[in-house]
Amino acid sequence: MVSLMLAAMLQSTAPVTSFTAPNAPPAKAGKPNKDGLVCRKETLVGSRMKTRVCAQAQELQIRKNEDRDLTEKAQALQTIRQ
């Protein structure tokens, strides 16, 4: 039953293109450039190298909220399994 719930949750979420390391310090958002893009460096899971991520400030905030929601859902499912 848990695997069915997990499969349903994974199908209902949008694919994630990258994950930031859970113990990484919060990325500092730079100032918007002339195009309105904010660039920051993020550490990807499984890599020691940081990658530069540029997006609109609103897009970064939406991504941050979606990442937080996904983490909370995964933690809630893990609590149910135990």
Rank of each mutant, 00 (worst) to 15 (best):
L37W: 00
P32T: 00
K34Q: 15
L37Y: 06
A57I: 01
R40D: 01
P15L: 07
L44Y: 04
M9L: 15
E59W: 01
G36M: 01
V38G: 03
A7P: 03
P26T: 06
K28C: 02
Q78H: 09
C39K: 03
V2S: 07
S18L: 15
N23W: 07
P22G: 07
L6E: 14
S3C: 11
M5V: 06
P15Q: 13
D69H: 07
E66P: 02
L6A: 12
E66L: 13
T51K: 03
K73Y: 03
G30D: 04
A21G: 02
L70S: 05
S18T: 10
K50S: 05
P32K: 02
T13L: 13
Q61F: 02
A57G: 00
A55I: 01
R52L: 11
N33P: 07
L44I: 06
Q56P: 00
L60A: 06
M49Y: 03
D69Q: 15
A14L: 15
Q82N: 14
Q11W: 11
V45R: 09
Q78I: 14
R52P: 01
A14M: 12
K41V: 05
L60W: 00
V53E: 03
R68D: 13
E66M: 04
T20W: 01
P15Y: 13
K73G: 10
A55T: 06
V2F: 10
Q82C: 03
P22W: 01
K31A: 13
C39M: 01
P26D: 12
A21M: 06
K50M: 06
V38S: 05
L4Y: 07
R48Q: 14
R63P: 02
A55Q: 08
C54E: 03
G36N: 04
E59M: 04
Q58M: 02
A14H: 10
V2G: 13
A55F: 02
R48Y: 09
Q58C: 05
T51M: 07
Q75M: 08
S3K: 11
R48P: 04
L10H: 14
M5Q: 13
M49R: 12
T20F: 04
D67G: 15
Q75C: 10
T43L: 14
R52W: 04
L70K: 06
Q78Y: 09
K73R: 13
F19G: 00
D69A: 10
Q82K: 07
A21Y: 06
K34M: 11
C39I: 05
Q61T: 10
L44F: 07
D67S: 14
L6P: 03
A8H: 12
A14R: 14
G30P: 05
E42K: 12
T13W: 14
